[in-house]
Structures are given as C-alpha cells and as structure tokens.
Design a protein around this nucleic acid. Structure first.
Length: 963
DNA sequence: GAGTTCACG
DNA sequence: GACGTACGTGAACTCT
C-alpha cells in the first residue's frame, strides 16, 4: 500500500475512513498576542526574542499530539490575519484604530511563528482583506455542512458566535473547552444571539462603538427581552424614559454599524480545500531543524527521545501517530507553560570551563574578549559582608555562556611570610581593568553592583578610584520587574533558581559555616574559581533574561531613570558615612544603664520577686497571674500580650509597675539598639558610621538601611531624641537636614484628585487642621489630632476596626467617620476603588513613575490575607511615588551641587522623606537653596504633580540641632 | 528560627 | 462569630 500511495493520498484516504472528521482551526494571530503577554520574554539561541514563538510551538505540539485522542483533530489549519486593513475598515475607519502598535520585540516573531507552522508541515492560511475570524467562520460553515466536528482554537469572544452543536472552542492557555453553555454563562444568551449582544455592548479592544452606557449585562437583558438587535432598536422609542432609552435612539446608527463589525463573514472562498487540511504524519526533520535553530531544547529532546524507537516514521503511516503520542503526552500534555530547563537560549552552565587568571597575558586576553563582546559581567569576592570594611580578594568576569574567569588577588591570607598561590598584583590588575570598566563602549553588568563599586573604589584608591560605566544591575532589574511577586529576595542564588533553574554553589559550600568557616581568601583557587566565575556567568545570564523584559513589561522608565542612576549615588553615601560622637554616646549609655538598674529594682519590688523584665512571657505572668491585672491572652502562642498599648492601659488604671516597665523598656531599647550598638558600629579607620542601604529591600520602592539602620533613629520622644545629637558634623561643617513636608498626603491629594486637599496645600494651610475643619467644623487640639489619624488611615488603606482602635471609638462610629471623609473628600473613594480594581485585574499597582508592586495575595481566598493585600495595594502607589521622587532628587543632587560650585557638600543619609547633608559652614545657605530647589522639582519633567512639594531645611552642628 | 516588642517614615 | 487590625521597614531580645 505504501508503495503505490503517495503520503498525502494515503492520509486523505485514512481521514476519509475514520468515523468522524474533526477539524481544528487555530486562530494563529490571536494566539501570538496572548503567548507574548503570558510567557516570559525568552530569547532564542541567537538572542532574538522568541517567547511567543516558543509558546506557540508548544501549543501546536500539544494539539498535534492529541491526534490519536477520540476527539482529537483529524484535520488542522492555522489561520492568520494577513494585513491590518480589511473590509471592516471600509465600514468604519475607526475600527481597531485604538490598538497600540505591536511591541517592538514581538514584531520579529510574526514571521517566526509562520515558520513554526511550516516546520510542523501544517497548512498556514491567510487571505487579503479578511480577518482570521472570517476565514475560520467560513471553514466552519463548510465543515459543518459536511457533518464534521469543528474545534476553534482561540479565546476571541467574537468567534464564540460560531459555537453550535458539533462546534466548540478550545482556549489552550486556560486549557478550557467552551460549548454553548459558556456563551450562556458569560453573555447570558445563546451563541446565535451573541453578535447582537456584542453589537450593543461594543468592544473597546477592537474599538467597536456599541451603545454608550450599555455593558454586557444590559445588552444581554435587552436581547433576551426583545429577541434581536433590530427588535431592541425598534422598541426603543416605546421604552420608559431613561438615559438608556435616549442612548438607544441616539446611537441607533452606531449600533447597526457595530452589528456589521462583529458579524463574521462566513463566505470567504476557502483558500485550501477542506480535505487538504488533513493532519497526519509530521515529518521530524523540518521540525528538528526549526527547534535546533531556536534552541528549544526541551522540545528537541522529546522529539529525539520519541522518534528513536519509531525509526520508520517517514515510511510507515502508522508510526508518526505513535511518535506524536509519545512525544506529546509524556508529561500530561502541558508543554505550553513549560519553562523547560532545556529551553535556555544558552547551553547549561559548566563550571569546568572556567579559567583561573594568574598571568598578565591571560588577563589581557579577557579584557580583549570583553571589548570584543561589548559586554562583561563582573563580580568581586571579598573577606567580609560589608562593602566598607571588606578587603578585595578576587574578581570574576564573564563575557558569554561558558566564558568566565576568576582573577585571584589576595588568596592565601594576610600573613606576608606565608606561602601564597601564584596570583596577579591587585594594584596592577585594577589599573589594567580600569580603562575597561570606564569604557563607554562596554556594558558592565553586576548583581548588586553597589557592593562591587564600593569594594573596587576603595581598593583602587591608589589609582584615583574607579567608576563603572555604563552599567546594568540585575538585582535592580529583578526588583523592578517583580517586586512583591513571590520571591523573598532578589539575591543571586534565588534569582538563578527562579530564572535560570540553576542552583549556584553556596558560599557555605566553599567557606563552611560556624566555627570552621574560613575567609574567602583561604578558599583554594580551584574551588574559588568555580564559585566566583559561576557568579559572574549567572549574572550575565540573568541579564539576558531580564533585559528584554524591561521594555515588554513597561518598567524601563523606573529602572533607567529612577533606580539605576542611584547605584553610584548610594555607594558614595555609604562610603562617606556620618560622624558620630563616641564619648557622648558612651555617656548616654551610662545614664541609661543607671536608669535601667534603678527601675529594675523598683519593678522587682512591685512584683515581689526578681524576674526577667525583658521576657514578655515572664512579665505577662507577673502582671496578669500574680498581680491579677486583667488583659487576657492574645498572642499566637497563647501568651499574654504586654505591648505598649496594654501597658499604657494598665498604667492609666493605676498600675505603677506597668509605668515602670514602660520606662525600663524605653531605656533598654535606647541603650541596646542605639547608644551601645552605634558605638560598636563606628568604623575605626574613618571614625564614622557607614550604613548599608538596600535598594531592593522594600516592596514599595523605598530604600531600607541596615548595619546599622539609620532610618529609625529616635525622634518622637525627648529622651530618644538625645541620640540624634550624637550625629555630628566635622569641624568647620554643619549638618543640613531637608525634609519633604507631608509628601505622601500631597501625593494622595494629587493622585486621588481631591479638590479640598489640593486647595489646602496650594494655600499653604496646616493640612490636618484643614481636615479637622472640613470633618468636624472646628479646629482644636482634639479634632486636629483625630483628623491627623484619619489622614494617615487613608494613606494606609483604612478599615473601620483599625481606625476605631486608634481613635478609641466603636467600629460603627469609625465607619461613620470614614463615610464622612469620603463625602467631604470626593476622589479618595474613587482612587481606592480604581487602585484595587486594577490590582485585581493585573496583579500589580503602579506609581506615577511606573514602578510596579505585585500583590499575588490580592485574590487570596482567606479574607484577612486578601484584605491585608488590599490595604498594602492602596498604600503602595503613594508610598512608592514618594520613594521615586526622593530618588530622582538624590540622583540629580550631586551634579546640581557641583554646578553651583558646592562640590564639598556631601549627601550622607536618606530617611524616606528626608536627606541629610554635611556642608561647609560658609556654604550652608547656598547649599540649602540648591537642595530645596532640586527636591521640590524632583518629579518634573517626568511627572507633573498638581500640588506643590514643600521642603523644610534646617542646619546645626548635630542632626538633632538641624531639625 | 519564631515570636514579641519597639525605633523610624 | 472569630479573625486581629492600618502601610513600609530593621534590630534586639527571649525562648524553643
């Protein structure tokens, strides 16, 4: 049989013999966009964007693999839109006119997707002047006439008009089959009435006008009631007077036009006869070639694995079916979301390829290679975690997959007489690398480059320091793409696991842990090379993953204009540090110690026994069990809660021991967290304290500060405030503190567009007093205080219970107050509603600068989790915009000061809405003016804020005095 | 390492 | 009817 029949002929014969033909019509064009948006923006082996191609290929694979299933395809074709102009544009020139142009990195994928189709040897159909929908409709009509089953592979709701007995739809991305019930569920009518419903409701995506004010619900109601669009329009004048009636009459023409636009053209001449669409053996060779070209390795593996046993695929008509079955169903047939480890644009990481660079020639080779590639990832190895004291131990570079090296510089410890491995001189190496690192034509990539910048700049002090430019930072890319999106952090190991499916060698694996831990300088060179070079290669690979995503996901602006410029700025702030008065702190520590001792005695006397006051467990037992105070259990572990609100309450009820415990807590907090800790943090070499800022620590885009945290130095109480006086200026200089006044409320007024609040800010009024006037009709201490609480509650995402607890009123009263606020400040309610709606629809919120924060729990089934996410989502755009603005100010500050001849003014600290500078006394006034100017105008020109941003500036010998 | 408490914006 | 109450952080301490 095979000898006398051609392949196609046989297939036609075999299809005719099967009991039930089943035609699959794939909406190729519709699929491209969904695959593009739903899949990560992968690149293929040639660095071309290919995410949509991969998604599409995987989907075809799965469909073809279903061939053998009872309801699988016997015939299959992929239909594409040929051009953007169709007969619908002649009907209505605005049709699809609001479509944004296809994303830049999608355009090259269109032809690649047609290639994919051909690689599967599948018919690829398109027709000038018609949309894919019309061709699909026409094939459907023809197939139904012949009694075939039809499955339309698409998620386009317009195509749901074709659903009927024997015709269904398949949404492969949601893995959902849709019959008539789907249309009923979703649109409230049968598929044959769907066109009328769509005509009434319109479609903003295709720019089908419809009738204003009529959405899916009303449209379905009308069509159900009157039967057809014509009947609805005819009946309109007789309807009871309403806006809807008026709209139906006024927009009758548009409704009829919309009907034509959504109508599918069902009589397009079929470009290929139905029988030619038969699906049979898929020759493996073209497919293999295609998969190999792109580097779709996971699919390639399946192809090879499955065809190995089916040798005669090309000659035996039965074999191909077996082949595809094996190929496509081995994993339950879900290749579409397969982030297959094999689908890396690059070969797997192979640590045996790394080179240890110990000669000048070898280093020069690597520098030349970096120049040739125009791109190099860099990572430094040191002997400590903090970048200010850490000593440079080695540098790793990577110029491409499998191309990475490690340059040891200080291995073998510090003992100058000990035997050390052969390695290059650090000073010579840095001098050699400097031109490369500063070469405008070579992009440098780091993962948390701020760290490397600090280490390298200090190590290169002898040669005038080191800049790195231009650069990209993959930790910031990760943060800007996915803040809040599940990953705990954005560190290299975690990022490599998440995005490269690769487990890096752990630091512990090379250096050990606990007592046996050794410095990286003690790690043998072979191990050190594997570890360090891997980090550089991983950084480079992460960059390849992230770079195309920045644009595709709309975060280029925040990355390039807000976060990335901050890296050298923050690095410089960390290196500068701030002077701290050790003697003063030591005196304070002593005073606090005395206070603690005296209080301890008193507390033990009240308790009638000694106990550990710092233990909430013991304290709870003393207060509630022994002394009989009431306060109930609260904590998760069943213990008593003894926090400040409880103790304040007890104190107000006359419990003297509670008051003493509060005082004791304040003293011991101040001593252990601040006066003692801060002294220990003074860098002996500089006499200053150098905090470390994290640019990726806070989901909203704020910075965070650690080791020590200089963003929570006391200020609210008089005793705590004394600690601020320990932060001082050098001789002949002053500290200058510049604060944004009420920046978050100002942003809320702008973003929610609240007229009353905006006016108050424009008039320079006391905003809490103005709020009190508006809410309570009078301003005094009490009403202003309440207004202030409510204003903050709004920023934080209000709940009646939260507000009730703060104001010590009932939740009902709090609810009334919230309602009053919404009433007096229209805009707030709308803002909250819109923000939540968008967060639920997209999964993220955005700042005015485009910063995304993801809220995966916004749809959590557990109420309090969901509500927590909602509150955070309400706050994030405001807190995040504020963070963006001060970051813009910081990035511009250095150049602005320099232009003004104030280069000696140094920025030291950032505390969310405050910047602290050290300035020569003589320059204080001029610097204050420049700083204010930069901060107040930091949003523009990127973003225009409709309320002024006010900045308060103060100076003094200490931070305390500068406020 | 989790839980509690408390310092900041 | 209970949930645990505001958003974002980091550090110190206790106890398992």
């Amino acid at each position: 049989m095979t000898a006398s029949f051609g392949r196609r002929a046989w297939l036609r014969y075999s299809a005719a013999m099967s009991e039930q033909n089943h035609l699959y019509l794939v909406d190729g064009s519709g699929y491209i966009f969904r695959a593009y948006h739903q899949l990560p923006p992968l690149t293929n082996r040639h660095g071309q964007p290919a995410g949509a191609v991969y998604g599409y290929t995987a989907m075809l694979w799965k469909l073809a693999a279903d061939l053998h299933h009872a309801d699988g395809p016997t015939h299959l074709a992929v239909i594409f839109d040929k051009s953007s102009k169709t007969f619908r544009n002649d009907l209505y020139d605005q049709y699809k006119a609001n479509r944004p142009p296809a994303p830049e990195d999608l355009i090259p994928q269109f032809p690649m997707i047609r290639d994919a189709t051909r690689a599967f040897s599948l018919p690829c159909i398109e027709e000038e002047g018609f949309e894919a929908d019309d061709i699909i409709a026409s094939y459907t009509v023809e197939a139904v006439k012949r009694g075939w089953h039809v499955t339309i592979v698409s998620s386009d709701k317009d195509l749901a008009q074709l659903i009927q007995p024997g015709v269904d739809m398949l949404d492969t991305m949601k893995n959902e089959r849709r019959g008539p019930g789907y249309v009923q569920d979703k649109f409230g009518v049968d598929p044959d009435k769907l066109g009328d419903v769509l005509a009434l409701m319109g479609d903003s995506v295709d720019n089908v006008p419809g009738v204003p004010g009529i959405g899916p619900k009303t449209a379905a109601k009308l069509i159900t009631e009157y039967g057809t669009l014509d009947a609805v329009l005819a009946a309109a004048p007789a309807m009871k007077p309403s806006k809807m009636r008026d709209n139906l009459i006024e927009h009758e023409g548009m409704a009829r036009l919309s009907r034509q636009l959504v109508e599918l053209h069902r009589e397009v001449p079929l470009p290929d006869p139905l029988d030619d669409l038969v699906l049979g053996a898929i020759p493996p060779e073209p497919l293999r070639e295609f998969l190999t070209y792109h580097g779709f390795n996971s699919l390639l593996t399946r192809l090879d694995g499955s065809s190995a046993g089916a040798g005669g695929a090309m000659t035996s008509p039965n074999a191909p079916r077996v082949q595809m079955k094996l190929a496509g169903t081995e994993e339950g047939g879900a290749p579409k979301a397969d982030p297959a480890p094999g689908f890396m644009a690059m070969p797997p990481i192979d640590r045996s390829l790394y080179e240890t660079v110990t000669s000048e020639d070898a280093l020069d080779r690597w520098i030349a290679e970096a120049r040739a590639e125009g791109i190099v990832a860099i990572d430094t190895e040191t002997d400590a975690l903090d970048s200010i004291t850490a000593r440079l131990v080695g540098i790793s570079l990577s110029t491409g997959p499998g191309r990475a090296c490690y340059i040891p510089l200080a291995h073998g410890g510090t003992d100058m007489f000990a035997e050390k491995p052969d390695q290059l001189d650090a000073g010579w190496t840095l001098a050699r690398l400097k031109p490369l690192l500063e070469d405008e034509g070579v992009l440098k990539i780091g993962h948390n480059l701020k760290y490397d910048l600090n280490v390298l700049d200090r190590a290169a002090a002898g040669i005038g320091g080191l800049r790195i430019a231009p650069f990209d930072d993959t930790i910031l890319m990760s943060f800007d793409l996915e803040a809040g999106k599940g990953l705990a952090g954005h560190g290299m190991d975690e990022a490599a696991r998440a995005h490269l499916d690769h487990a890096c060698i752990g630091f512990k694996d090379v250096a050990g842990t606990g007592k046996k831990a050794i410095s990286f300088a003690e790690v043998p060179l072979d191990r050190a090379t594997e570890y360090a070079a891997e980090d550089a290669e991983v950084t480079l690979r992460l960059w390849h993953r992230f770079k195309p995503r920045l644009h595709a996901e709309g975060v280029t602006r925040v990355y390039e204009l807000v976060d990335r410029p901050l890296v050298p700025v923050i690095a410089a702030m960390e290196r500068t540090g701030i002077k701290v008065d050790r003697d003063y702190l030591s005196r304070l520590s002593g005073e606090f110690a005395d206070g603690i001792l005296a209080l301890e005695k008193e507390i033990h006397e009240y308790a009638g026994q000694p106990f550990s006051i710092g233990s909430p467990k013991q304290l709870g037992e003393i207060l509630f069990d022994k002394l009989g105070h009431k306060g109930g259990k609260k904590g998760k572990a069943g213990g008593y809660s003894t926090d400040v609100t409880i103790l304040e309450k007890l104190k107000a009820e006359g419990s003297e021991i509670s008051g003493k415990v509060l005082e004791w807590r304040q003293f011991s907090k101040l001593k252990s967290t601040y006066t003692d800790a801060l002294q220990a943090q003074i860098n002996p070499a500089t006499g200053r304290v150098h905090t470390s800022y994290s640019l990726t620590g806070a989901q909203t885009g704020r910075l965070s500060s650690t080791d020590p945290n200089l963003q929570n130095i006391p200020i609210r109480t008089e005793i705590g405030r004394q600690i601020r006086d320990a932060f001082i200026a050098e001789e002949g200089k002053l500290l200058l503190a510049a604060d944004y006044s009420q920046i978050e409320l100002r942003l809320a007024a702008h973003m929610a567009d609240v007229p009353a609040l905006k006016e108050a800010f424009l008039a320079g009024e006391d905003i809490h007093a103005a709020t009190a006037q508006e809410l309570f009709g009078r301003v005094d201490r009490e009403t202003r205080g309440r207004a202030k609480t409510i204003n903050f509650a709004i920023l934080y995402g209000i709940s009646r219970w939260g507000l009730a607890a703060r104001l010590e009123i009932t939740p009902d009263e709090a609810q009334d107050m919230i309602a009053r606020y919404y009433d007096r400040f229209p805009g707030i309610g709308v803002y909250i509603g819109d923000t939540l709606e968008k967060a639920r629809a997209t999964g993220f919120t955005q700042t005015l600068f485009g910063r995304k924060t993801w809220f995966p729990r916004i749809k959590a089934a557990i109420q309090h989790e969901r509500q927590g996410a909602e509150r955070a989502a309400i706050n994030a755009p405001i807190q995040g915009t504020s963070a963006d603005i001060i970051k813009r100010a910081m990035a511009r500050m250095g150049p602005a000061l320099e232009r003004a001849g104030l280069a000696e003014t140094r920025m030291l600290l950032q505390v969310h809405d405050e910047l602290v500078f050290e300035v020569p006394e003589a320059d204080a006034e001029a610097a204050g003016a420049v700083i204010r100017e930069v901060m107040e105008n930091a949003a523009s020109p990127l973003v225009t804020i409709s309320v002024p941003l006010a900045v308060e500036v103060g100076t003094g010998k200490s931070w305390g005095a500068a406020h």
